[in-house]
Amino acid sequence: MNPYISVENLSVKYGNDQVLHDVNFQTDKGEFIAIVGKSGSGKTSFLNALANLIPFSGTVKLPGAIGVIFQQYAVYPWLTVAENIEFGLNKVPASERKNIVEKHLQLSHMADKKDKYPAELSGGQVQRVALARCMANNPELLLMDEPYGALDSYTRDKMQEWLLEVWSAMRKTIIFVTHNIEEAIFLADRVLVLEEGKFVQDIKVPFARPRKAEIKFTPEFNELRKQISTFLN
């Protein structure tokens, strides 16, 4: 099998602090991977290393362009919604640019707010713009670092549903970091548990797609949640 993404012996060190220890990891194209772990387990460092934002040792094989969504400071406050979405599109000819921006404005349900500034939007709307900007650049891989961590649970649920909508439409490969086990199980095909810089579990999520929010209350879901919880403790 030729993995779409492959990571071998990835190590990250901050000074004398070894945050990731010889981590190995593989995914197929179009997979939705969730990574859970306690704070300080190295989840963010894993994503940042994959995105080549921090120094690391080891081999990382990626398919092409990457998009990253962070939890905070996701979009530029000095650009409107439309300008933010357009930001990465300089290589694209001007006429096409307009169409791409329009398309993603529609997809993210932000068309009526395209001239607004991020300060005028709610937290959920800002994250939608962040995703739209990412998607407009058509990345092969999407890295998401606790993107809904700062949102209230109602908005969070809505964002999760919407993300699944977008994902099933575009079938990007997603690596989604969260400390919320429920979120991980609901969204992902596989949940990886990261503990002290190492992957200790790789659990396949058995639920069929499309998934509705109701499955969170099923006994199977709870069972899985308990299982993963135990690994974390």
């Binding site: 995105a51 934002l53 990457i66 998009g67 962070f70 905070q72 990465g88």
Partner: peptide, 13 residues
């Protein structure tokens, strides 16, 4: 400037 603005810039252009 928050690091993340710089990183985002680096990733997008």
């Amino acid at each position: 400037i928050p690091k993340i603005y710089i990183w985002t810039g680096r990733l997008l252009t």
